[in-house]
Design a protein around this nucleic acid. Structure first.
Length: 141
DNA sequence: GTTCTGACA
DNA sequence: TGTCAGCA
């Protein structure tokens, strides 16, 4: 599978995303209510986020810090957000990854993500590194 | 133990 | 937004 596909795989429960973005579960769910993100759901109705979702949340976070409200964010990045074109193959791939996702594997995945998108568009690597640093070191929670 | 929805200071 | 309840 290609990189674009890999970034769409629903892999992380809200707890992981919480640490990855430094946002509270409350905020993450709130942004979903306002259609800023659309995570997948497990059979048990639990949310599963993809790398794309995490990136989007980081963008949302930066805009919130700049003082924008939900409406302002929608105007900026809040496209209709169609997506959801999961193929059976992708779902299988996602389940495969999740079943063997350990903290270290996650670290590797994130590092790949980091280098894969180094210096790309409006997502300064420096910012992402800050998030990763927070995740893999002390001040969690 | 973790996540989910609904509700309220 | 935080937090607590009552489930799954």
């Amino acid at each position: 599978m290609d990189d674009a596909m890999r970034r769409k795989l629903a892999l992380f429960p809200i707890g992981i995303v919480q640490r990855l973005t430094d946002l509270t579960a409350r905020q993450i769910r709130y942004y979903e209510q306002h259609a800023l993100i659309h995570p997948e759901r497990t059979h048990g109705n639990q949310r599963l986020y993809s790398f794309n979702d995490v990136e989007r949340l980081l963008e949302i976070k930066s805009l919130i810090d700049k003082g924008l409200n939900i409406a302002g964010i929608k105007a900026m990045i809040g496209q209709p957000t169609p997506e959801i074109d999961y193929t059976p193959a992708m779902q299988a791939a996602a389940e495969e990854v999740r079943s063997e996702l350990t903290e270290n594997d996650l670290h590797e995945l994130l590092m790949q993500e980091l280098s894969a998108r180094a210096g790309q568009r409006g997502n300064p690597v420096s910012m992402i590194q800050g998030e990763l640093s927070r995740f893999f070191h002390g001040d969690r929670r």
